[in-house]
Simulated assay, not measured.
Amino acid sequence: MVGWRRIGFDPAIATWAAAARRAAVPALGGEVLRCGGTWAVGLDLLANGPDGAVAGAAFPWQAVGLQPVPLHPGQLSAVYPGYPQPSPDETEAAYRFRLNRDSAHLDGLLAVGPEKRRMVKEPHAWILGLPLNECSAGASPLVVWEGSHRIIRAALEKRFAGQAGDWSEVDLTEAYTAARAEVFKTCLRRELPGRPGEAVWLHRLLIHGVAPWQAGAEAPAEGRVVAYFRPLLASVRDWVSLP
């Protein structure tokens, strides 16, 4: 298993994506842009219900091959031409990592405290991305490192071994940094552009990121917009141990 799967075009996904786009464009208008004005994070910005429906369009559970679960308001990640640009909000090293390593990361692992120690604060079951508009393949597509979830799981299992108490308070900084370095050395990097009516499912432990915007790539005025969902699991232990 490479840790991701593409879900091909389905009319039910396309209908949902069209409704989500109509809701997304005005919502993104109020977002503060990061990375020199080339990225809107859009956390919890989509006005979907707990069943995933948007403006009367049912969430396409059957088409994406997932069992219905309560959903949070979707993230609306919008990327614009020129991404990424330097920003006073991040260090030069962080900018170079965004530019050269696609800002590769593991969702759910947050930087905590002034020293930004990595801890699991958002243990999620899976990641589902649904493109909302037509864009060129080079318009900052999603990037994954195939098979990286296996390396990350092995590193986490080793770090958590023998740990009692609340695993969300365990510092994973060094274990994660070393595992990610191994991912870069051994895993295939793959770009995953998509179009409305398609979706992409990611294993929750898969390393992924966003590619820089390629010269000549095109997107609508609202940028390349993807809706993401990450429903939470009951515990960090489930996040590590479940398939």
Results as ranks from 00 to 15, higher is better:
27 A>G: 10
242 L>M: 09
161 A>N: 11
129 G>M: 04
164 A>H: 07
128 L>D: 03
54 V>N: 11
47 A>I: 02
88 P>Y: 08
141 P>M: 10
36 G>M: 13
35 C>V: 06
76 L>Y: 03
183 V>E: 03
32 V>G: 00
106 L>N: 10
92 E>Q: 14
148 S>W: 01
108 G>F: 13
124 H>D: 05
211 A>C: 12
181 A>Y: 03
93 A>Y: 02
187 C>T: 03
214 Q>S: 14
92 E>G: 09
97 F>T: 04
128 L>G: 05
132 L>K: 07
140 S>D: 13
95 Y>G: 08
131 P>W: 08
167 W>P: 08
94 A>P: 01
200 V>A: 09
130 L>M: 15
152 I>F: 04
103 S>Q: 11
98 R>A: 08
178 A>I: 05
73 P>K: 12
52 G>A: 03
197 G>C: 05
219 A>P: 11
232 L>S: 09
136 S>I: 01
138 G>S: 07
81 P>A: 11
231 P>R: 04
158 K>N: 10
197 G>T: 01
50 P>F: 07
173 T>I: 02
243 P>Y: 07
178 A>P: 01
52 G>T: 00
59 F>K: 04
232 L>M: 13
183 V>Q: 07
229 F>W: 15
41 V>A: 15
98 R>V: 02
5 R>N: 01
165 G>L: 10
85 Q>R: 15
212 P>S: 12
4 W>A: 09
72 H>P: 00
226 V>G: 00
74 G>D: 04
212 P>D: 13
239 W>H: 00
33 L>C: 06
117 R>E: 01
38 T>R: 06
240 V>A: 05
141 P>E: 12
147 G>T: 14
146 E>C: 12
26 P>D: 05
11 P>M: 10
49 G>Y: 12
118 R>D: 09
15 T>K: 12
47 A>F: 04
243 P>F: 08
51 D>C: 02
11 P>E: 13
221 A>E: 15
73 P>C: 08
220 P>S: 09
42 G>H: 13
87 S>W: 14
168 S>Y: 01
203 H>I: 05
72 H>A: 15
242 L>C: 04
27 A>C: 06
44 D>N: 15
243 P>H: 02
